[in-house]
Design a protein around this nucleic acid. Sequence first.
DNA 1: GAAATCATATCGTACGCCCAATATATTTAA
DNA 2: TTAAATATATTGGGCGTACGATATGATTTC
Lengths: 118, 118
Amino acid sequence: MPCCCDMRGMLSFQTLWLLSKRSMNGQELCREIARRKGKAPTPGTIYPALKELRKRGLVQMERVGRETRYSLSERGREELDKACRYFIGAFGDILAEYQKALDKGGRTLEGRNAPENS
Amino acid sequence: MPCCCDMRGMLSFQTLWLLSKRSMNGQELCREIARRKGKAPTPGTIYPALKELRKRGLVQMERVGRETRYSLSERGREELDKACRYFIGAFGDILAEYQKALDKGGRTLEGRNAPENS
DNA sequence: GAAATCATATCGTACGCCCAATATATTTAA
DNA sequence: TTAAATATATTGGGCGTACGATATGATTTC
């Protein structure tokens, strides 16, 4: 069942990716996602996702005072690498071509989707 | 409700993208998706998705003999453009960074996820 | 003529994403 | 000291993706 391409949703994928950069608590994670998607996931979205990733052994959790810091496990790092390869194979052509079109139009890739509630 | 970033799932997004290249019937579409994701969507996946895209006016359908050719509508083209911008903003950094890593490793982006049943 | 293939499409089921609503506890600002 | 903000987490519902099973009709192959 858990095949090499079991990305199982873009939220989990993006979560693994962000946690590979640095460990975060739930709120920080939501803000980082909001910077990219323009909208932060609600608690009812992010916490079940983190719970599932923990259950699958891809994410670790550590309580520091009132905070709960989430970090990538070794297995999570391996799975993220597989997921990235799959992602590139599946959608790499879209990015490459659209990026080229934007470059021709004199625009950079910097523009993220503006957060609504910043 | 239908906001500018209403991608509503990667399958619909990829479908719009592929149909923007050329019109296809359901089977061709499935094969193109399989070339990228490694696995073709089943009829129970692709046809409801196409039906929904048609209902939203993003995809047109035309019967040619026993074939049903699907093509992008003008509205579909506009929505695809918005979706691409959203996609780049949300996941562009992942693609860009991983692509760079692959290039360093002397690998190209050509490698798609190998289809299981070719 | 029978069997295989192509092409289309639906049904039921399961699961992940997503939100609004609700709840608790702590900390900071008016 | 009340109010606002921070941080965590669950519940219930809707929707999109996804599969296997099932079905039909035309065309091609044996």
